[in-house]
């Protein structure tokens, strides 16, 4: 878009979609803000009245709130760590020439195509169940006491399930990036006496930095609002041990019927997401330039 003409033409072209998107986002946001200032309980319809900031102060002073923030961050960071490290490892493996490469690659994508609810239920009932689960069976095989994952390590279990779902996405993006690495550069490094590990550190990893950034940005957006996996496995519990912000808002609105409080929570979640996005772009957005 070099000339003034092409630039204004471009603006004109994208205007409709920008306006549509804006309306799409502004209306619900405005309504949420409006609700967040009301005393609005589903059990007492027609009794709404202006409540000032009291919804916010209730939400922010709720001990569950801090637990939820911590859990949200733990899920985001935990899943990011597992998927980026695991994704790089898997991508490196899949990049090796091997028998049945095409089929293996399709199999690797499979978890991403499974609905979150289904995936979480499969994990809950077939793997992590302390009586019938695969892990329990393996534990018994070794004469160990089966571990009740969802009761004793609920947050870690949720992280594990979500990471399993997002691993294919990371692997796929990193694999395509890996394949775009110039073959001659690798050979040059080989001639320069770089070991496989040095080639990985000095050549492959910098080459992947952009793809890693994309993986982190996209996944963060989705991981901030993990919900289905928590709902069907732990229901936020025991207590609030696996409640994240999204789940807390849900509990407020549909378990305690407090729409006003939930809206306030929703707005706080939006603000927090923006803070995270801001820092994220500050930290790693630079790699996307140039």
């Amino acid at each position: 878009m070099a000339t003034l003409h092409t630039r204004s033409a471009a603006r004109l072209m994208i205007a409709p979609s920008v306006l549509l998107l804006l309306a799409w986002m502004i209306v619900p946001l405005a309504m949420t803000i409006y609700f967040s200032f009301l005393r609005y309980n589903l059990l007492m319809p027609g009794m709404e009245e202006f409540a000032g900031f009291s919804n916010y102060s209730y939400f922010l002073t709720d001990p569950a709130f801090f637990q939820a923030i911590f859990n949200t961050l733990a899920i985001v960071l935990g899943v990011l760590f597992i998927t980026v490290v695991g994704g790089i490892a898997l991508a490196l493996l899949l990049d090796q020439p091997m028998f049945g490469q095409g089929i293996v690659r399709i199999l690797v994508i499979a978890p991403f195509l499974i609905m979150p609810t289904v995936a979480a239920l499969v994990w809950k009932n077939m793997f992590m169940n302390p009586v019938n689960g695969l892990f329990a069976w393996v534990a018994k095989l070794f004469g160990l006491q089966p571990f009740d994952f969802l009761a004793n390590a609920p947050l870690m279990s949720v992280i594990l399930i979500v990471a399993w779902q997002w691993l294919p996405f990371a692997t796929l993006i990193l694999l395509t990036a890996l394949q775009s690495l110039d073959e001659e550069q690798k050979e040059a490094a080989q001639m320069d006496g770089a070991s496989a590990w040095s080639r990985f550190i000095y050549l492959v990893l910098p080459h992947l930095s952009r793809a890693i950034t994309v993986v982190i940005l996209i996944q963060t957006i989705f991981l901030l609002s993990v919900f289905a996996e928590i709902l069907v496995t732990t229901n936020g519990g025991p207590g609030t041990q696996s409640t994240n912000l999204t789940f807390l808002v849900y509990a407020q609105a549909l378990l305690q019927f407090d729409v006003g409080g939930a809206s306030a929570g929703g707005i706080i979640a939006v603000i927090l997401a923006n803070i995270v996005a801001f820092f994220l772009m500050r930290m790693i957005g630079k790699t996307l330039e140039a």
Partner: peptide, 30 residues
């Protein structure tokens, strides 16, 4: 690496994220 030969490739195969200094110094660093 153990043949003691150096190669200049048609595409140059420079390491894109390294400065000229690090590019030239890479074999020594290794």
């Amino acid at each position: 690496a153990q043949r003691g030969l150096s190669m200049v490739f048609q595409s140059y195969a420079l390491y894109p994220h390294m400065s000229v200094r690090s590019n030239i110094g890479f074999p020594l660093k290794m």
